[in-house]
Write a protein that binds this DNA or RNA. Structure first.
Lengths: 141, 141
DNA sequence: GATTACTGTAATAGTAAAGGACACAGTTTA
DNA sequence: TAAACTGTGTCCTTTACTATTACAGTAATC
């Protein structure tokens, strides 16, 4: 689920550009270059966090639920919990006592955790609205 | 090569704890729970950047070349260039004109690039020496 | 109330990436 | 010349990711 985050962002930007109608998973998948089932799975996470509203049945689909300037990439990252930061200490069972490895794990876990928090803090500066704005400036619409 | 970074850090911390003798790839691999060939491959990158000195032949191996407080995790990250930050936009060929996707790629690439720079800046605050110190405080040696 | 167009979610299969293992040439020391 | 190393390439296994399919559930429309 590494690219789930980028798909989520892309989908939300797309939905933010269509504030007054629903888009189906197929339509979104077409924009985002993946498959409807995958879009549905990812949107399911976003729905649970309240970022999108979904509707089943005819005429259903997905629509942006919040104000685009109220949703940050940090929000999305947390809901997808995709662990884009692939830093993890080896989860080896055989740590012998009195070796360097015994405690370096704790130390490194702490460092990696901090690093991820910094990363999320950066993502929290960026809103869906700001991305949409940047794209509009480039005259896409 | 995702874990290459952690192996590199672990290895350097180990070497920093043995400032006055060489350690073979086998000895390092034993500490770091991987295989000698992999250690050699990773240490090869660090040698090119001048962080370790290597010596072939009998009695050879690896030794820390710099002052431990002069080498940061950022330095290591850059030499390994492991791309721990697995954020990349889909490299899809079929971007049709006049679609949202056309420019969102540029925008997102820029954001992800910035994010990685922030991440590396954080890593630059942490030295091998500081890690070694933290471990020593925990009375490993 | 049957049909159609959707979501929700699980299961399966295919594919790409990562890591482990091995091999062997090159180098240094004794 | 033998022994103990590094340097590096390649193959193989395993793992993780993604695509695909399938099907139950739901809402609108006729």
């Amino acid at each position: 689920m590494t690219s789930a985050f980028t798909i989520a962002v892309h989908s939300l930007v797309f939905l933010a550009s269509l504030p007054d109608r629903m888009a189906s998973s197929e339509e979104i998948a077409n924009q985002v270059f993946t498959h409807p089932a995958r879009v549905r799975k990812i949107m399911s996470c976003l729905r649970k966090e309240g970022y999108v509203k979904t509707k089943e049945g005819i005429g259903g689909g997905y629509i942006f639920e919040c104000e685009p300037d109220a949703v940050t990439l940090g929000n999305i990252y947390r809901s997808i919990s995709c662990k884009a930061l692939k830093l993890h200490w080896c989860s080896n069972e055989a740590y012998e006592a009195c070796q360097l490895s015994t405690h370096i794990q704790d130390v490194m876990d702490h460092i990696f955790n901090d690093a991820e928090n910094h990363f999320i803090a950066y993502l929290d500066h960026i809103t869906i609205e700001s991305i949409l704005h940047k794209i509009k400036v480039k005259q896409v619409f």
